[in-house]
């Protein structure tokens, strides 16, 4: 079946099997930032935004997102100018292997838009589905908290 999606601002038409998962379809079409750490909705590495909402792309069928807008990490920032979230994570030395980064950055993007005024504890709770085995989480949380502070100051 054919689906139409807008990925990172570009209209796409893809032929997919009804049983195909969004994570696989995205990766097959070159969006390699989307990671598959578990395939069972337990790690958060496959997080993308669908119509602005953070979604585990390993747990939705590609067919179900037809007509929707998808954002992946490829759409954020440029080589010359990192997106503020990327910059904040860079400044905080937030990642080691970085395998969790794409999912966490997308989840952070949603959180910043949805609830930009959270305490560190609330951030930890909200993003608990995005696992990281390397970093100890702290620098990631600090970076997000800093982004929220900035957002509030700017607002």
């Amino acid at each position: 079946m054919e689906i139409r999606v807008n990925v990172n601002g570009v209209e796409k038409r893809w032929n997919v099997e009804p049983s195909e998962l969004l994570v696989d379809v995205l990766r097959d079409n070159g969006y390699k930032s989307v990671k598959k750490g578990c395939g069972s909705a337990d790690c958060g590495t496959c997080t993308v935004l669908v119509d602005g909402r953070a979604v585990l792309s390993c747990s939705v069928f590609a067919a179900s997102v037809s007509g929707k807008t998808i954002e992946t990490l490829e759409g954020l920032g440029t080589d010359q100018q990192l997106h503020p979230i990327q910059q904040a994570f860079l400044d905080a030395a937030a990642f080691q292997c970085g395998f969790c980064a794409p999912g966490l950055i997308m989840a952070t993007k949603e959180l910043l838009e949805k609830e930009p005024a959270l305490t560190e504890d609330q951030i930890r709770h909200e993003l608990s589905g995005n696992l990281c085995r390397c970093s100890g989480y702290e620098n990631q949380v600090k970076a997000i908290s800093g982004l929220m502070d900035k957002k509030r100051e700017g607002a």
Binding site: K32, L76, G77, Q86, L90, A93, F95, G98, I105
Partner: peptide, 21 residues
Amino acid sequence: QNKEKVDARGILRGKPVYTED
């Protein structure tokens, strides 16, 4: 010094960097 990780920008931009990519 806390020098930036040499691979950090590529990772943060979601570039293909791991085996499966």
